[in-house]
């Protein structure tokens, strides 16, 4: 109904005619926090929201816990983003039948005790099983919601979701009931070194439970350093420059918007390793799926400039 659109916008413009536009305010208040305490803050806030929160010093420790914990369930629906060693040793089932859903979060937020989940791994496994286990890397725990939401602007999946506790309702006489529609238990496990584990390619997810070991073929970081100052373009043709390269990150700046994005060394290395092992990474979508959801358009373009994809 193009006429309806025109008439609505006309009425909006008439209503606003002669009024001063109101300026947007400067950045809002944020709680003061110590950089080091993000994980502790996250765990405390998640627990206050009813999350069963856990912390592991290594993937091995997480795996050891998982083996006994998962024994209580008969079947699981596991995200293809979960690295093989952290997939529960259970028969696979579709989300509408599985007793356990297992996700790999994009990030966790200390302010609110939330995990950020992507529709790229499937939405049903996050919602239908009565218990939901979410893995998150310690390095992906951020203090503020805005840091996690920054991912919205950059090539997002069709849907993101923040989960901050079990499904609950007080609609029956103000009495709190859990597990009304979504999972009645949300278990979040923060693991140091999780991102180092390889994501299992989707087609292996249903059968292969052993740790995958691609040929290590390290990315030459000096070659990345040499890109500093170079002008590159994304697959879509958006121009950007490599502004600076530090020991663990590369910072790129986009020509059109002036926005800067940080690419982590270990994400680039992971993608390079996978590509060397024969996994095709034809573009940013595959990079996001297989390596990191972190400015994939620019990360992929950097790897292409190095001839690694």
């Amino acid at each position: 109904m193009p006429d309806a659109k025109r008439r609505i916008l006309d009425r909006v413009r008439r209503a606003l005619a002669g009024r001063w536009p109101v300026e947007a305010p400067a950045d809002p208040w944020r709680p003061a926090v110590e950089a080091a305490d993000a994980v502790e803050r996250f765990l405390a806030h998640a627990e206050a929201g009813g999350v069963e929160a856990r912390r592991f010093e290594s993937p091995d420790a997480a795996r050891a816990w998982l083996e006994s914990w998962a024994a209580a369930f008969k079947s699981a629906a596991t995200s293809p983003r979960v690295p093989a060693p952290l997939a529960p040793p259970l028969p696979a089932a579709p989300p509408e039948e599985a007793e356990l859903g297992v996700s790999r979060a994009l990030a966790a937020v200390a302010d609110t005790g939330s995990v950020l989940l992507s529709s790229a791994e499937g939405r049903r496994l996050q919602l239908l099983p009565p218990v939901h286990l979410v893995w998150v890397d310690e390095a992906e725990v951020v203090q503020h919601l805005g840091e996690a939401l920054g991912r919205l602007a950059d090539d997002p999946p069709s849907a993101l979701a923040l989960h901050s506790g079990p499904s609950k309702s007080a609609d029956i006489g103000q009495i709190m009931v859990q597990g009304v529609h979504g999972p009645g238990r949300l278990v979040v496990a923060v693991v140091r070194g999780l991102a180092e584990l390889e994501a299992r390619p989707a087609e292996e997810a249903k059968t292969d439970r052993g740790p995958s070991s691609p040929t290590p073929d390290a990315l030459d970081w000096e070659a990345v350093r040499a890109l500093a100052g170079r002008a590159l373009a994304t697959k879509r043709g958006d121009a950007f420059t490599v502004e600076k390269v530090t020991e663990n990150t590369a910072v790129v700046r986009v020509g059109s918007s002036g926005k800067a994005y940080t690419l982590r060394r270990r994400c680039l290395e992971k993608a390079a390793r996978l590509a060397a092992a024969g996994t095709p990474i034809p573009g940013p979508v595959a990079y996001r799926k297989l390596a990191c959801n972190e400015a994939p358009a620019y990360a992929w373009a950097v790897l292409r400039a190095l001839g690694r994809v």
Binding site: G122, L145, S158, S164, S167
Partner: peptide
């Protein structure tokens, strides 16, 4: 609450590489 228990951030219909939606 600090934040709603579930927040949906919907950007578009299911993408071809996504399993559902």
């Amino acid at each position: 609450q600090k934040v709603g228990t579930f927040v949906s951030l919907i950007n578009g219909p299911r993408r071809p590489d996504e399993p559902d939606g």
